[in-house]
Structures are given as structure tokens and as C-alpha cells.
């Protein structure tokens, strides 16, 4: 895994998650990968070791668990291999 990517059901959740997580973790805002569809265009990238902590922080903030999903992302040959780590599959 190169990084974990948190994708959201809507843009407002993405923006508030970025603020919540940015206070405690190192985060990067990035466009949702083309390989991951059916979520809003803004995603939050965190370090591979931080995704469980990130999920915990989001739940503690009151965000509902069905508002986000977390993927592992590994880059290979210019493409991305993505695998669902947490959240309901689409």
C-alpha cells in the first residue's frame, strides 16, 4: 500500500473530514481516483499507518459510517490498484 484514500458520499463530508483529520494527521486533499467511482470528487489521502486512526476520528466527530469508505492504493505501471479496506462495497 502506498497510501490510504478516504472517499466520501458528498463534498461537504469530504471538506469537513479534511478539517477534522488535518488537525491530528498528515493529510493531502486529492481528486478521487478514476478507478474509484460513485463517490464525490474530493478525497483525503492519509499515510498507510493512519487509516484506522482516521476512521476513529471521523466516527468520534459524529460522522456516520456510511458517509465514507477507505481504500488502500498501490501505484503500478502508471495505474492504481485499489482495494477496499473499510466501508460497505458499492
Amino acid at each position: 500500500m502506498d497510501y490510504a484514500l478516504i472517499v466520501f458520499a458528498n463534498t461537504h463530508s469530504a471538506i469537513s473530514a479534511q478539517k477534522i483529520l488535518g488537525e491530528k494527521l498528515s493529510v493531502i486533499i486529492m481528486p478521487t481516483l478514476r478507478e474509484i467511482s460513485k463517490s464525490c470528487g474530493i478525497s483525503v489521502r492519509v499515510n498507510p499507518d493512519d487509516w484506522q486512526r482516521a476512521s476513529q476520528l471521523l466516527l468520534e466527530s459524529g460522522m456516520s459510517h456510511d458517509m465514507y469508505r477507505i481504500y488502500s492504493v498501490t501505484s503500478m505501471d502508471g495505474a492504481h490498484a485499489v482495494a477496499l479496506l473499510e466501508g460497505a462495497p458499492v
Binding site: T11, I15, I29, M30, P31, G41, I42
Partner: peptide, 14 residues
Amino acid sequence: RELGTNLIRMFFYT
């Protein structure tokens, strides 16, 4: 503004 700020971050990321 908040949206525009995140859009420009994503632009430079991309």
C-alpha cells in the same frame, strides 16, 4: 471559498 481552496490543492496535486 472552502471549495475553491480544495479545488486548487487538488489541481496542484494532479
